[in-house]
Design a protein around this nucleic acid. Structure first.
Lengths: 124, 124
DNA sequence: AGTTGACCTGGAGTGCACTCCGGGGCAGAG
DNA sequence: CTCTGCCCCGGAGTGCACTCCAGGTCAACT
């Protein structure tokens, strides 16, 4: 199993070392293995998991959402935890957001069309 | 031209009185007319403009983006200001965001499918 | 005349998500 | 053996976008 030094994990996830430690402190992933001298050693699994976190965070989920998500994952062995329901809830929120953004895109398109015509072509 | 008391403007825009004043202080819209006693009187135009702000803010634009936007609008009479270019830039950023969110949606779909199957149906 | 309620102001406070800082440890290169 | 680079830690600081607060004005109602 491939492992990564902090710097490389940072590069692969696109998060800063600080943020990686921050997420770990908050329990969003890990625990991360350490060398005898206390340096972190990230596994493939860690990196992949952080990738998921980044993706969901990009999508607008907050830290507390991610924490809940983690919690459900951890307790999944002891029966249903409503994980699926939680995910579905986030999904529908996400769809709303996308709808809002598409609306904004439409508005931008209109404005662009409008001001392009009015300004004449201000292409350089 | 219809006008609105602060409370009604708040209701129509979905922003709190505080936020409305905040946006005005930052120069995102206005100046807003006042009664002799200093109370604000919002016009149709104000409300519509705030609607646009809300839409763009929902889409993830920051306050400083909105300020730039306002600035260009104000100076538009004195020739091209690059307003259209600014809008186009925001549009492409927005498209990126939407793409990210759709990616996250895909991930969520996968996870939901996966855990639904594994949990069995945990429907109550 | 008193009370209520909507509104005014400047400035302080909040919550989030990082980001930075100072002080220190350890390993390999010169 | 010192120097450089990468990493450790807890805690303080930052930037954003609000949100709240104290103290005050005014109009209308009872």
């Amino acid at each position: 199993m491939t492992t990564y030094a902090p710097a490389e994990a940072s590069e692969r996830t696109g998060l800063s070392l600080d943020t990686l430690r921050y997420y770990e402190r908050l329990g969003l992933f890990g625990p991360v293995r350490r060398t005898t001298t206390g340096h972190r050693v990230y596994s493939d699994h860690d990196v992949a998991w952080v990738g998921l976190l980044v993706c969901l965070r990009n999508a607008g989920l907050g830290i507390s959402d991610l924490q809940q998500f983690m919690g459900r994952m951890r307790d999944r062995s002891s029966g249903p935890t409503g994980l699926v329901e939680l995910l579905e809830e986030h999904r529908s929120r996400l769809r709303d957001e996308v709808a809002k953004m598409n609306l904004a895109l439409g508005v931008l398109d209109d404005k662009i069309a409008y001001y392009s015509a009015q300004d004449g072509q201000s292409k350089k």
